[in-house]
Design a protein around this nucleic acid. Structure first.
Length: 419
DNA sequence: TCTGGGGTCCTAGGACCC
DNA sequence: TCTGGGGTCCTAGGACCC
């Protein structure tokens, strides 16, 4: 049996833990650069604010209903996520972190009769330890567990835990579950299925196997089997290393000054390299891309990118920064206003397996010790304590006009408390 | 005026091999 | 006129997820 623990309205719930005034009123959290709505309280959902909706489109509703608007604060959310995951791990044999707000639970070996109560205990313990409300879905496959967790949000009397086990119970749920809400069915296959007269998960599992294979490939077939109770997506006990690492941002305003872009690209490179080192990998390619504002078609448009390779796979911020800057210089074109830039590391492999070049100009051991020192200093004294000169201390501006304090990760940012 | 960021996997087609 | 069979690797594009 698989469990799925899903935090309800996660980013909004994180904000509410430390700002109880946000309880019971409509709240939304925005994407980077304050662009789109990416988390909504139940009250915000009820008044019709949509997921992913641009802020400016939602603003009439926001004004009319006095919706509280917050910029995203990932330092807070990732710390809260760790607390939730730690609590989950203490309650089940194993947990697979699936996203910042979800984890699959390995429930093998637990008697079926105890699963329902266990789910309720997990939900109430996470709530008590972290303040975050979660929904626990339990079923014979991951796809069914996802559906079970969604039912918790619909039916309060389930007390945050839904077990779908007996075939007749599963069939009953699938009969009314919308096909486009199934995990694995996205914005293309959803409408395709509806066009074919398949509106519910129940109709989907009744479709012919060959038809699914033909129209939706092996991934669609896997979803079909999972819904029929045949697990095809296994439990991952150790997270695989990333094959690609990306850091990118949109800017508050279009950048025309090459120095602004250089500093941004240097910062993104440093952040990518840090992620790379954290998973113990090296990379053999660094890609830089810059893009104009695609929502302003009346302005000259460009998307440019360039990939460069170090002589030997590396995880050194310094080596990668030199390459990234060279790549940027080769694609930057005066006269364009760049709204977004990013760095992508690829060709990723384990550090332990690096094949060095006979003509390698750099001192590997020295670079490694330097990066270790860099990571230790920043780990101890804060993220941007030690930076490359190329980054500077004055990052290119993004919009973040409604940000909450870093309640859990930086004491000096806590609001003053009157006694 | 204002429109996010970070990933994975599959598939088809082309280039190439013998 | 007739024009093989079997395979690998790479890439771009499309689908999906949060």
């Amino acid at each position: 049996m698989y469990g799925l623990a899903d935090c309800n309205n996660f980013f909004v719930s994180c904000e509410r833990v430390f700002a109880p005034r946000l309880e019971g009123i409509p709240v939304v959290v925005l994407s980077n650069n304050d662009g789109c709505v990416i988390s909504r309280s139940n009250e915000a959902k009820a008044i019709g604010i949509r997921m992913g909706q641009p802020l400016f489109q939602a603003s009439p509703l926001i004004r009319r209903h006095g919706v509280q608007v917050l910029s995203s604060n990932y330092a807070l959310y990732s710390d809260m996520s760790h607390r939730v995951m730690t609590t989950l791990r203490s309650l089940v044999p194993a947990a697979e972190v699936y996203s910042i707000d979800e984890a699959f639970l390995d429930l093998s070996g637990i008697p079926t009769g105890e699963l329902s109560a266990l789910g309720r205990r997990i939900a109430s313990t996470v709530r008590r330890h972290t303040g975050i409300p979660v929904s626990i879905g339990t079923a014979p496959s991951k796809t069914l567990a996802k559906i079970a967790s969604k039912l918790c949000k619909q039916y309060p009397k389930l007390h945050d835990s839904c077990l779908m086990y007996r075939p007749e119970d599963i069939a009953k749920v699938l009969r009314t579950f919308p096909v486009q809400d199934i995990w694995g069915i996205g914005r293309r296959h959803g409408p395709m299925l509806r066009g074919a007269g398949i509106l519910t998960a129940g109709q989907f599992v009744q479709a012919r196997e060959e038809w699914i294979r033909h129209r939706m490939g092996v991934a669609g077939l896997r979803t079909w089997k999972e819904l029929r109770g045949e697990p095809c997506i296994g439990f991952e006990h150790t997270p695989p290393a990333k094959q690609q690492i990306c850091t990118s941002r949109s800017f508050a305003a279009e950048a025309t000054d090459p120095d602004d872009l250089r500093r941004a690209v240097a910062l993104f490179t440093a952040q990518c390299a840090e992620k790379l080192r954290r998973q113990g990998s090296v990379c053999s390619e660094v890609q830089v891309f810059i893009a104009t504002n695609r929502h302003r078609p009346e302005l000259p448009q460009q998307y440019a990118n360039r990939i460069l390779s170090p002589p030997t796979p590396t995880d050194s911020t310094l080596e990668l920064t030199v390459l990234a800057e060279r790549a940027l210089r080769s694609i930057f074109t005066p006269g364009f206003g760049y709204k977004k830039a990013g760095v992508i590391l690829s060709g990723i492999g384990p550090r332990a397996a690096v094949q060095t070049s006979l003509f390698d100009p750099s001192d590997r051991g020295r670079q490694t010790r330097l990066m270790k020192a860099l990571d230790q200093v920043n780990g101890r004294f804060g993220r941007h304590t030690l930076v490359t000169a190329a980054q500077g201390f004055d990052p290119v501006k993004t919009n973040r006009n409604h940000v909450s304090p870093n309640y859990t990760t930086s004491w000096d940012e806590l609001p003053e408390i009157k006694v």
